[in-house]
Every structure is written in structure tokens, then in C-alpha cells.
Design a protein around this nucleic acid. Structure first.
Lengths: 305, 305
DNA sequence: AACTGTTTTTATGTTTACAGAAATGCAATA
DNA sequence: TATTGCATTTCTGTAAACATAAAAACAGTT
């Protein structure tokens, strides 16, 4: 199979496939190339290539001079094909991050070292180390080499991160530039309800994490202050790194979503102060559960290392 | 003159020169290569090269098999030479940042565009755009090109940044992991007193900004929570960008330093809560002066554009 | 023993060329 | 007229080779 795993085309084919499989694109629906290209802020070329790729896998069909359409009935293998595709694609960044989190590489590395270890080209090594720097767990040494920071792997780190969130998230809601956007509120409410209504375990762990992160990011966006958002996005990236292998507590999930819904209600009723307070409580709870959670995480690390 | 402006050697020669000219290294003092190399976390090679460079400019002298020493009397031209050197060295990053702040380049640029405009090699263009991304004012587009964010140039941006600082800095002092370090307190007190004692205008604007930033960063370090520090460092980078051309209010400087000293005293006496409150007040004042300040800044931009 | 001076090794920055991907323009079609 | 399909242009990723810089090892000096 000639799959493109990197670049815009590869990402698009994966995303569109997910949209189809999750039902966000209905069966038989027309797929307008220009619309999609604008949605993803790219040109039509990679969109068309992605669709042609999906055609090979019988997710879409093509009618000459009319364009692409979602197939009338999904092939049986589709879901499995998608999953295998996602799971095999542990990308290079995760490779490096995992090795660091499991102490498989030393805390100071040279560009050369990672190139040899992973067989990466020069530019690739540099750009991945740069990404790690952007996301806060690496930094360049004055001369040669890079230092990998213990920030995302210690037990304390988890609670430190949550304490930081407690400082910024409730404060963001109290910003003078705060502006309620009912569309955002409703959208988030729908998501939370969807999670509550779903079968236990039907939503993959990664998606749960993603929904959680986006809930908090959308909320902080309402503050109208980009610095709060940027700070949260950054720590969320580190959080994803930390929680990558951690198990999600499915029982907590119900309480979690309910609290999210409560906060949304308060905001909609204009009780911003209450919402801010509730948000603080909500985050504090997660912090207090930390002890158990990080123990599990430590065991996970132990197991892997 | 064969000057190295980039790389470790170049940075070192500049920094050591400043240390000598500012009196932090006394006349005739011995310059131990190994000690210096450890101080700057590099090997002896660039240190020796930097010192050999300074020898050419008569700031240090070399005695065979005994090493380098600060000269007994500084040459008259030294101060001027240093200044000219600093001012001519507007580095490439500043070039790009300035052009963006003065609207000399569009908000979406391609790598190619900046390469041609500044005559940069491919790698250089990429790494500078990456740096801009790290520092929060640029981001990669999904396909080709980069988007430059208006975050560091609007009038609102200034107050948004300060409101963010008000949210995190006082909170950091209240962290349970907060730990007083008298060495840091004393060091900062010395710096603030030094500024107060100095002749009006004897310290360059950039140094003033730098001292201010380091005061707040050292304080937030005491919290023991790296996430607070990382967030502050990041916004400080953007602040430096914004205030790069802004005039420093020399009269405010005295009040500013006094407030810094007050906060240090409170901390030393163990009144962390008071210090936290005072810090909030201190930042709020700066925020309220914003109106005047940003007007000046707007005029500056106008003038340059 | 600790430092300087020198040599050797290793790592990184820079340039170039080329292949491949994305953007763009244009003709054909519904 | 908006959209598709295709050709063309533009931009970017990758690899290799080389020059240069930093680190490390070693010999000589105080």
C-alpha cells in the first residue's frame, strides 16, 4: 500500500477518513474540494490527492467531472484498517519523547547522537529537538548538545502543572475582556453530553484527553487574552506527553463531564464568578487525585524502563 | 578587524569585554580559562579564542605559559569601541522582528520570501522562523508559509501581557513549594541599589530592561514551580520585542526600583502574602501607565513605518 | 596538582543540488 | 457560474559534501 504518512496529504487523508467513519460526513455526501481546502487552510491539490487515496480504500468514490462522494456503504474492514493505521504511526517525535520519559537516553544528548540512534537526517534531528524545545522539555546548550529537562517526568511535575493551571484558568475567566460566546458553549455542551451518552470504552483514550484539553482551551479563549491561551496550550502539550501512557479513570469521567456541564451552565447564566470558582475546584480535585494517579504513572514508567 | 559576531566565541568575547568595562573584573585580574569555561558551560577552546580576540583590542594581555590577565589600564577608545560594536550588531532576528512590528512585511510570508528579502540561507530562514514561533509571534501554516501574529504589536497586547503577569507572578509567590533564598534576595537588592546609585543615563536602556526582567524571573524562580517560570520567560521575550524601541521613563525608574526593594524586604521578613500583594500592585501600576506608554509606542511605530 | 598551550577528534553550520509536494492558473464540464 | 481535472509554477524537504567551530585528549610549564 502506498501510504503517505507525513505531509499535508497524509494528514488530510487520515482526518477525512475519521470524519467519514465517525459519521461527521454522512454516507453519499458530496465532498467539495474547494470547501474542504478552505476548511483546512490548504490548496486543493493535497485535498484531491487525499481523496484519491481514500478512493483506493473504498471510503469515497469518484464520478468523473462531478467530483468525490462518500460511499453509500462502508466496507467492513474500514474501521480496522483505520485503527491499524493510527496505532502503527507512532511518529518520530513520540519516539524521542518516550525514550526520554523512560530514561532510555541520557539527559544531555548531541544532535549526532540522536541522528545515529534513530537514523534521522540532520534537519530532522534539529527540527525535532526544536519542537521539544518549543514544547518545553528540551533546551539547547551554549556550545554543542541539548539538555532534556526532567520537567515532564517527575512525580512533582504533575502537581506543579496543575497548580499552574489553577493560577491561570480561573483568572482568565475574570478578565475584563471576557466575552461569552454561546456557540462555543453549546458546542462544548454537545461534546460533554456525547461522552456521557456513549458506551463505556467506545471512545479511545486519546480522544478523551483531546476533548478534555479542548474544553479548557475553548473556555480560556473566551477571556480574549491570547497570553492565557498560549500558556495553557503549552502546558497541555506537556500534559499530553505525560498522560500519553496513563490509563484514564473511566469512573471519574462521569463526574468530570458533569462538572464541565455545570461550569458551562454557570457561564451561560452570566455567573462568571461562580464559574471561575467552580473551575478552580474542578482543577483542585484533579490535583488532589494526583497521589494515586502519579503512582500509577510511576509504575507504568517502571514497567517500560 | 576580524570580528566573530556569531557563535559561542563571539558571544563570549562580548560578555567578557562587558565584564571588564563594567568593573566586574578588576584591573590586572587573572582570567582562569577553566573557571570561565565552567561559568559559561562551554569548553576552554572558545574561551581562549575569545580572550585572544580581546587581546587584539588591548582589553587583556597574555603572558606566555601563565595565561590571560585584565590589562592594568583600559585604553581610551575601549568604551566607544564596545558601544559601536553592540549597536552595529542588530542581529538577524531583530531585523525580522522589526520589519514585522513596523508592518514592512505582510502577515503571511513564505520561507522563500524571507530568504530573498534578507539574503538568508534556507536553514537560517527556517531556524529564525522557528525561533519566532518559540517566542510566540509566528506560526507555521498547514501547507506552505508562515503566519506572523499581531500579538506583539497591537496596543491591547501590552495590557493583555501585563494582565497575564498579574495573574501568575503574585500567585507564584503563594505556591506551597515557595522557598526563600537569601542569596538571590541579596543579589537582587545589590542590583536595584546599584541602579539607584548610578548616574542618570549611565546604564544603557537595554540593560535596564534586562535587570527588570531578571528581577521578576528570579522572584518567580523562588516558587519552585518551573511552569510559572517558563510562562514568565516566554512573555518577557515578547515584552523585550515590544519595548525594544520604547523609551524608558527615567523618572519612573526610581519609584520602580524602590518598589522592588520593598518587595525584597517583605520577602526577607517572611511576609510572603504582603510581598505577593505588593507585587500585584506594582504590576497594576505599570498596567495603568499603559495608556501613555502605548501611545508613545504607537508614535514610534508610526515614525518608523 | 593545576594550569596553559597544542593537537586531535568530534559536532555543528553552510552550501548546493535535486526530488517531491503544495499552490496556482487555465481549459473543460456540469 | 461554480466546480472539476489537469498542467504549470512555486515552494519546501532531503541528502551529501565541505568548512568551521567546539570538545576532548595530551604534552609541557609553573
Amino acid at each position: 500500500m502506498t501510504e503517505r504518512l507525513t505531509g499535508v496529504t497524509g494528514r488530510l487523508s487520515k482526518q477525512i477518513a475519521q470524519e467519514i467513519l465517525s459519521g461527521r460526513r454522512s454516507l453519499g455526501e458530496r465532498l467539495n474540494a474547494k470547501t474542504i481546502s478552505e476548511e483546512y487552510r490548504v490548496s486543493r491539490t493535497p485535498v484531491r490527492n487525499a481523496l484519491m487515496e481514500l478512493e483506493k480504500n473504498s471510503l469515497v468514490e469518484r464520478i468523473p467531472n462531478k467530483g468525490f462522494f462518500v460511499v453509500q456503504s462502508l466496507p467492513d474492514c474500514a474501521q480496522g484498517w483505520m485503527e491499524s493505521r493510527v496505532s502503527t504511526e507512532i511518529d518520530d517525535y513520540q519516539l524521542l519523547a518516550n525514550d526520554w520519559l523512560t530514561d532510555s537516553i541520557p539527559s544531555t544528548v548531541t544532535e549526532q547522537f540522536v541522528r545515529e540512534r534513530y537514523g534521522w537526517a540532520k534537519v530532522k534531528a534539529v527540527s525535532l529537538l526544536n519542537r521539544a524545545t518549543r514544547e518545553g522539555w528540551a533546551e539547547r546548550n551554549p556550545g554543542y548538545g541539548w539538555t532534556l529537562l526532567p520537567v515532564a517526568k517527575t512525580t512533582e511535575s504533575f502537581s506543579e502543572l496543575y497548580r499552574f493551571r489553577i493560577a491561570i484558568e480561573p483568572a482568565a475567566l475574570m478578565e475584563p475582556t471576557f466575552k461569552l460566546d454561546r456557540k462555543v458553549i453549546n458546542q462544548q455542551r454537545d461534546i460533554q453530553n456525547m461522552i456521557l451518552d456513549s458506551e463505556m470504552g467506545s471512545i479511545p483514550d486519546e480522544a478523551i484527553l483531546e476533548y478534555g484539553a479542548s474544553f479548557h482551551e475553548e473556555l480560556i479563549k473566551l477571556s480574549g487574552n491570547p497570553y492565557f491561551l498560549m500558556a495553557l496550550q503549552r502546558v497541555n502539550k506537556m500534559r499530553k506527553l505525560m498522560e500519553y501512557k496513563a490509563q484514564i479513570n473511566r469512573e471519574r469521567l462521569v463526574v468530570n463531564c458533569s462538572e464541565h456541564l455545570e461550569i458551562l451552565d454557570m457561564l451561560e447564566q452570566g455567573s462568571v464568578v461562580d464559574a471561575s470558582f467552580k473551575l478552580r475546584q474542578h482543577l483542585s480535585k484533579a490535583l488532589n487525585r494526583k497521589a494515586d494517579k502519579t503512582r500509577t504513572w510511576d509504575e507504568t514508567v517502571e514497567k517500560l524502563g
